[in-house]
Design a binder for these strands. Sequence first.
RNA 1: GUGGGUGUAGCUCAGCUGGUAGAGCACCUGGUUGUGGUCCAGGGGGUCGUGGGUUCGAGCCCCAUCACUCACCCCA
Length: 420
Amino acid sequence: MSRSFTAPKGTFDLIPPESATFLRVRDAFAAGPKLAGYGYVETPIFEDTALIHRGVGESTDIVTKETYTFTDRGGRSLTLRPEATASVVRAALEHGLHRGQLPVKLWYSGSFFRYERPQSGRYRHFSQVGAEALGATDASLDAELVWLAAEAYRRLGLGGCRLLLNSLGDPQCRPAYRQRLQEFLRGLDLDDDTRGRVDINPLRVLDDKRAEVRKQLHGAPLLADHLCAECQEHYDEVRALLADLGVSYVDDPRLVRGLDYYTRTTFEFVHDGLGAQSAVGGGGRYDGLSSDIGGPSLPSVGWSLGVDRTVLAMRAEGIAVDDAPRCAVFVVPLGDDAHRRMVPVLATLRTAGVSSDMVYGGRGLKGAMKAADRSGARYAVIVGERDLRGDVAQLKDLASGEQVAVPLADLVDNLQEKLT
RNA sequence: GUGGGUGUAGCUCAGCUGGUAGAGCACCUGGUUGUGGUCCAGGGGGUCGUGGGUUCGAGCCCCAUCACUCACCCCA
C-alpha cells in the first residue's frame, strides 16, 4: 500500500456507487429552475478578490478567515469563490443582461471553496446548485424560488426538511433596529469575540448556538417587530403566496444568514441528519448587492442548495440511491477471433442506444460469465468459434438462464426489441 | 485557532496481563478445457500511520509527529 498522495484536507472524491446519489441530487435541484425559465450560467471558479470581499461582505467570517486567496503570475489577487451570487451578478452586469427584460433568471451548478476546519457536512470544497432572479422586487419571485427548492427536496423524498423564514428588513428599517439590538446586546455577559461581533454584525449574534448565549437572548428585540411598512407588506405577501402554494414554513425571527448582502426575505432549509450542521440550503433577497459591487440598483432574490449536505440528509433518512453503473447487455466473446469480431458489434449496439459492455483482458469463460453476472446486465451475448462458423450468437437471459441462438445479423434488432 | 476520538489486508474490524499477524466481505484461480448466481478447495495481498524510546522481545507500554474524524467558533 503506497500512500504517496491523498485528497487535500477537507476534500473528498466522489466514486461509484455513492457518486450516483450526488448526480441524482444535482439533477433534482436543476430540474425546477429549468422548468421555470431559468437559463444556465457558468462563471469562473476564481474571481477578483475585491469582488468576493465586497460581494460577500468584509465583516463576514467567510471573508475574514475562510477564503482561498492567491496572487497569479500577473500580480492579480484572486480568490476561489466561496459562493456564487456575487459572481452571477457580476456576470449579468458585465454582459448587460440587466438591460433587457427583467427579471433575468439564471441557475448554476458547481464547486465552491472555504478554508475551514472540516467536519461532518462541512468541507473545504463543496458543491452547490443555485438559482437567481435579478431585477425585480416582486414577492412572487421570492415565493417561486422557495417553492422550487421545497419541491426539489420533496421529489428527492426528503421528509425531514424544514423551512425557516424571516425578513431582514432593508436600509430604511434595519439601521434603527440594529442600533436597538446593539444596545440590548451590550448589556449582556458575552465573551470578547462575541462583543466584537456586536459592533460589526450584531444580527448574527442572534444566531449563536451556545446555550449560555441563547439563554440571554430571550428578551432581545426582533427585527420582525421593527420592519418598515414596505418590508412588512412584502413579507406578508411572500407568506401569503407560500400558503397558496402549499409550502409549509416556520417563521424564525432569529434566522440570520452568514452573508452581509441579504435584505428582506431570508430562508433556510434545515435537516437534523447532518451532525452539528443543519442547513441543507438557503437563500434570500439581496436588493443591495448589485450597487454594492458598483452596478445599478438591481433588486434580486436567489438560493443555493448544498449538494453534499443534501446527500448526507438522504443517507440519514436511508433514501440514498447509490448505484453502480449498469448495462443492459454484456458481451462474452470466446477466443481472439470472436473478441475481434464483437468489437464492432458492441459499437453497433451502443449506436442503437443499447447500453452494453463486454469482458476485457482475455479471461476464461467462467470468469467472463462472472463478470457478466456482476455487471447487472439482463442479457449476455456469448460468441465462440462454433457460433462464428454459423454466424450466430448465443443470447442468454441472465435472470432465467434461458439461452437461444440468434443470427448475428439480427442481434441488434433482437436485443432492441427485447429491451423495450 | 481550541478540544475529544481513531489509525492493523481493497472494505469492515478482531488481536488477552508485551512473546514475531487474524476473521468476514471483496478480488483472482481451480473443481466444470463452451456458461454466471449457490457450494467446495486454493491463492494474492500488511515495513500494524511515521520517527524515536523502554525491553531479551513492541500491533500492544512511553514520547514526539502526521493523517483521518467528530465537535467548538462559524457556515452550504
